[in-house]
Design a protein around this nucleic acid. Structure first.
Lengths: 203, 203
DNA sequence: TGCTATGTACACCGCCCTGTGTGCTTACAG
DNA sequence: CTGTAAGCACACAGGGCGGTGTACATAGCA
């Protein structure tokens, strides 16, 4: 999406089938899940010949891994890079995921693939660790006493909200945000150099 | 498992194929997931003829729903019924799920089936609500200011720990328990009639 | 203009899946 | 002992799946 993608050789000939394949993956894998989306269907949606798809990806497994790697982490990086917010606000903003996101695709992939060795599962693990690390960094910036712990806790809240939203078909992120607010206030010493306005989450 | 199961007619003839089928479901669906477990494999594991299986269940969907309905909620009821613990201890004990449980099967089913209308998905929703309700009851018993909110929050923590454990292949329940302790202490007024020993979770 | 990488169209393979049809055997109650 | 419900063995239908083979079309650079 961000930039016109080059083929495997890097010469960028043809008409960008690879991009269309990955774009269709984003939509279909998320809407229907990985296992319920066949390669035929995916290629039809991408308006790409099946043969072409298998010239770009050795198999569905590789495509799935690339799909996760390419997943636009709009929520993630979009929040952490905002300089208009204090660190504490950034931590809370991570829970503002309004209507979209049927389920964090990393959780979905881990469940559907059911194989920790699968490249996609490995990447999902890396991603989750990376999110926790960025949360920990921001927590440190916000002056948390134990930033690593707070980062891990907030990451768990995000995953909990995602999973619970999926099962119950409702938005659980407000609940998670309320918990996050409590944890953040508990973890940041009162003398931290941050604007500590106290906001109660009353639903 | 609890009681010898009767066939569809209730006469209990034969040699209890239905029980073996459900028992095998418990094992295989949990170990391998639902979609990755074929009926052939399942029947072989249950030492049951495929024909017999389809005489007990109209289809795999019905079997899956019954598998969830029959899932031994040892953690759930086992914890809530313990009278040797104070309400507060019972809330915390819900996070003592030591080694087992690859993933809460309800989350797994919701992800794998990807259909909110599926009977199993509907039951998963009911179950999750029931857990939150029992947590809320216990929270009320423990004297929480807003027991419904605390129940929902603790339920979210459990789901978060389950999901995160699955993706990262590590045990996230201690982290969730630490958060729970904070929430519980924050939600229960200091004057609540409960033993309030302060326990810090330092990992 | 031609060369080559890229993409196309579509039939096809082998596999595994859910689910059935059929005829036979066994357990158990009366 | 006998009738009947329960279970069994096994082949097979029908379909979707991931993936391939083949012959052909096109885009873009030299």
């Amino acid at each position: 999406m961000t930039e016109l993608e080059k083929g495997p050789t890097g010469r960028r000939r043809g008409r960008g089938a690879r991009e269309r394949i990955l774009s269709a993956s984003q939509q279909l894998f998320r809407e229907q899940g990985i296992n319920r989306t066949g390669m035929n269907e995916l290629c039809a949606a991408a308006e790409v010949s099946k043969r072409t798809a298998y010239q770009h990806f050795t198999g569905k497994d590789e495509l799935v891994a690339e799909y996760l790697r390419r997943f636009d982490p709009s929520v993630l990086s979009g929040v952490f890079d905002r300089t208009d917010l204090t660190p504490r606000e950034r931590l809370l903003a991570a829970f503002d995921i309004p209507p979209t996101t049927p389920l964090c695709p990393y959780i979905g992939a881990a469940v559907e693939l059911n194989d920790p060795q699968h490249p996609a599962s490995q990447y999902a693990r890396e991603y989750k660790k990376a999110v926790a690390a960025r949360l920990a960094d921001t927590a440190r910036e916000a002056g948390a006493a134990d930033p690593e712990q707070l980062g891990e806790q907030l990451a768990l809240l995000i995953d909990g909200a995602a999973a619970r939203s999926r099962v119950l078909n409702t938005d659980a992120f407000p609940t998670a945000a309320a918990i996050a607010a409590v944890l953040i206030d508990n973890a940041i010493p009162a003398t931290a150099g941050d604007d500590r306005q106290r906001e109660e989450a009353s639903s």
